[in-house]
């Protein structure tokens, strides 16, 4: 467990080596033993900034192409449409889990680059969590907030996030025999991952509810587990926001 004293200095002062040579020389003792291979510019992910630069957006074409491949991949060895949606959901889930902390990190005041600033608050209640999805997650992924956020009138544990033009559905055509399928299950997976990560166990599913104006209109149904609702009531009683 002990770290050699030369550890951090060796990391940045070691002479650069081309990517095909082994770091076996005595000048790079720490990382040769640790088995870490640095890229040729010697920058690890730890040297990069977590804040997004203004113009660092992915082109729509490359997303469409990549997502098409993901859908094709998920289509292999599936038995039913719900199987298909489950696979897409699982592809989005880890993404949502990781995005939660990135969002909280970026939401902290003063650009959060200095270590003196306080990180943002964790969502404790359902409403701040859904607001985070609506106002932070959506702009990060799609450069706009979601179109609407509603609560089910009959069941208080169900919420609906409505997207009139989901990016995932824009370039994917659904064959007739799979008309029930919504590839926005991928986005549902991202939302589910984020909620689960924050400690709000839930099931999120995507449903096509096209209208004349918005043929791709998709409703994400967020159904929180009973234990989450129980905690919600308890926190409400204690007056914690």
């Amino acid at each position: 467990m002990a770290v050699p004293p030369s550890f951090s200095t060796a990391m940045y002062s070691s002479p650069s080596y081309s990517h095909d040579s082994r770091p076996s020389s005595s000048s790079t003792p720490s990382f040769a033993g640790a088995g870490l291979r640095l890229p040729s510019n010697r920058k690890t992910i730890y040297d990069r900034n977590l804040n997004r630069s203004r113009n660092a957006e992915l082109s729509r074409a490359s997303f469409a192409f990549l997502f098409m491949e993901m859908v094709t991949y998920a289509q292999k060895k599936i038995k039913s449409v719900s199987d298909f949606e489950k696979k897409l959901n699982e592809q989005g889930y880890p993404l949502g889990m990781k995005l939660l902390d990135l969002l909280l990190y970026r939401a902290s005041p003063a650009g959060s680059s200095s270590s003196s600033s306080t990180p943002a608050a964790r969502p404790l209640r359902i409403l701040p969590l859904l607001t985070l999805i609506n106002n932070k997650l959506y702009p990060l992924l799609f450069s706009r907030p979601a179109d609407s956020l509603e609560q089910d009138t009959s069941d208080p544990s169900k919420y609906m996030i409505i997207d009139n033009t989901p990016l995932t559905n824009t370039y994917i055509s659904i064959p007739k025999e799979m008309s029930q399928l919504s590839v926005a299950a991928f986005i549902a997976g991202i939302i589910e991952g984020l909620c689960d990560g924050a400690g709000f166990q839930c099931k999120v599913s995507a449903h096509n509810q096209g209208t004349d104006v918005w043929p791709n209109r998709t409703v994400f149904l967020v159904a929180f587990d009973e234990q989450v609702m129980e905690r919600e009531r308890e926190l409400d009683r204690q007056g914690i926001k």
Binding site: I45, Y46, L50, K98, L102, S115, S116, S117, P119
Partner: peptide
């Protein structure tokens, strides 16, 4: 301060 700094590094690990 220590925790906040570790948090930043940890988010980078997550990425």
């Amino acid at each position: 301060q220590f925790m906040t700094e570790v948090y930043e590094v940890w988010v980078k690990t997550m990425m």
